[in-house]
Amino acid sequence: TTVKVNGTKYKFDTPEEAQKFAKKAADKYNLKVVVDGDDLRVE
């Protein structure tokens, strides 16, 4: 599972880890998590 934040992709072994990271990033930058198929985007 990958998470894309500000054009940078981060790869995670499990969707749970990816979800946690995406949520933290979204909170930090005051953005929202967008599900894109198997991957997540923070925008």
Rank of each mutant, 00 (worst) to 15 (best):
D38H: 10
K4R: 13
T14F: 04
K28M: 14
R41S: 11
K23F: 07
A26S: 06
Y10S: 01
V33F: 05
K9E: 13
F12I: 01
R41H: 05
V33W: 05
A22N: 00
G7E: 05
T14N: 09
E43K: 06
A22L: 05
E43L: 09
K24M: 14
Y10V: 04
R41Q: 05
N6K: 07
V5D: 00
K32A: 11
Q19P: 01
G37E: 04
K23V: 07
V34M: 08
K4F: 15
A18T: 01
D36K: 04
G37R: 04
K11L: 11
V34C: 07
D39S: 12
E17N: 06
A18H: 00
E43H: 05
L40P: 02
V3A: 01
D38I: 10
V5H: 05
G37P: 02
K32I: 15
A18W: 01
K24Y: 15
K24V: 10
K28L: 12
N6C: 15
N6D: 06
V5Q: 01
Q19G: 07
Q19V: 10
L31A: 13
E17C: 05
P15A: 12
T2G: 04
V5N: 00
K24A: 14
E17W: 02
A18M: 01
T8K: 15
G7T: 05
V42F: 05
D39M: 14
V5G: 01
K11W: 14
G7N: 08
K9R: 12
V33I: 12
G7A: 05
K32Q: 12
D27N: 08
Y10W: 07
T2I: 13
F12V: 00
G7C: 08
K9D: 11
Q19S: 08
K20H: 10
L31C: 11
G37C: 04
Y29N: 08
K9Q: 11
A26P: 01
K32M: 12
E17S: 06
K4Y: 15
V35Q: 13
D27G: 06
T1F: 15
D39K: 05
D39L: 14
V3Q: 00
T8N: 10
T2F: 12
G37V: 04
L31F: 08
L31M: 13
D38Y: 10
N30H: 13
G7I: 03
D27C: 13
A22K: 00
E16D: 09
G37W: 03
V33Y: 04
V42D: 03
E43N: 04
T8Q: 13
V3S: 00
V35T: 10
K23S: 08
V3N: 01
E16I: 09
